[in-house]
Design a protein around this nucleic acid. Structure first.
Lengths: 167, 167
DNA sequence: AATATATTTCATTTATTTTTGAAAGTTCAA
DNA sequence: TTGAACTTTCAAAAATAAATGAAATATATT
């Protein structure tokens, strides 16, 4: 396969995968592009390669930087900014896990705790509700804690985990 | 909090969480509703409670059944169908992991393998691309294998995992 | 301080996804 | 075998999300 075709295929696939996980397509594509670029790209480069507008590029680059998985770079004698992606995959996984925990899981836990502990109604229905949401709270909390622990390993957590699980 | 308010809050939150993970809101809401319902609900019940159309209910129930996390039930002397959710959380997690692996990760792996192994171009750019996509392939494969292993434990994999990781 | 270059913002447009609802399809009972 | 009860399908409508592009803002250069 031609290099350019392969790159394109990879970027498209990564973009599609992103949407299936609630990440907007362009954001995932920019990330993919930066991941496989040997050196940092300017906004112009990204716009050109993905055929997107300046505003779109700007907003999604900002979002990727907020996630902590894309960095700004400055080149000597260059006025414009360049961007590069976190290329260490362990680090990438950790960052994504941390952000998802902070943005989505933690707030959900808060609600789960609230609804599982404030229903005083004694009907069968209400009892079942409280029981089930309590279980869910415990489960999600445990999963979230696991994510946090995994994150502390930083390097090679996945490999370590695989070893532990396999045995 | 009133039972009905709590239930509503839970259903809404679960729905919002779903969208952030690429699952449509109504599908997540139906699932949430069934999770906390003491007994199976008819399509009519679900339409009523969530204020959605018949078509919407039908399609999302089908999707949930395809995921293997909602079941049809038949009641003696009742013509219409009833639905209930998988309430065992370990089982639920396993099912979701399996489906996501099958639908999204496996196809992505296929593409990663292809693009990482068919670029013959010898430019620096192309070399970097091949190197990076190969790493990504290895990483995703390892993660997917882990998911599979975890799945084999069936019961209490999460608790076990937490114990292993903590120590 | 004026100008040129680069980036961000955001109201509007466009694209995508989800929902509706009515017609077609099933199933069962009389 | 007819028809009532229920479910599914799918074209069209509605809702939501994402992208555009031009004006505003910021930053550097002369």
């Amino acid at each position: 396969m031609e290099f350019s075709d392969a790159k394109n295929k990879f970027v498209q696939t990564w973009g599609a995968l992103g949407s299936q996980w609630g990440i907007n397509k362009t954001m995932a594509q920019i990330h993919a592009l930066l991941m496989v670029s040997a050196d940092a790209l300017s906004m112009e480069d990204i716009m050109e390669e993905l055929q997107i507008s300046r505003g779109n590029a700007s907003m999604n680059l900002r979002a990727l930087m907020d996630w902590g998985i894309v960095y700004k770079e400055y080149k000597a004698g260059e006025r414009r900014e360049f961007f590069s992606a976190e290329k260490d995959l362990d680090e990438l996984a950790v960052k994504i896990a941390q952000e998802r925990s902070k943005r989505e899981i933690k707030p959900a836990l808060k609600v789960l705790k609230e609804v599982s502990s404030t229903v005083s109604d004694t009907s069968q229905e209400a009892k079942h509700f409280t029981e089930q949401t309590t279980k869910l709270y415990d489960f999600v909390l445990k999963a979230d804690n696991m994510l946090e622990k995994v994150t502390e390993y930083k390097d090679n957590w996945l490999a370590r985990l695989v070893v532990k699980i396999m045995k």
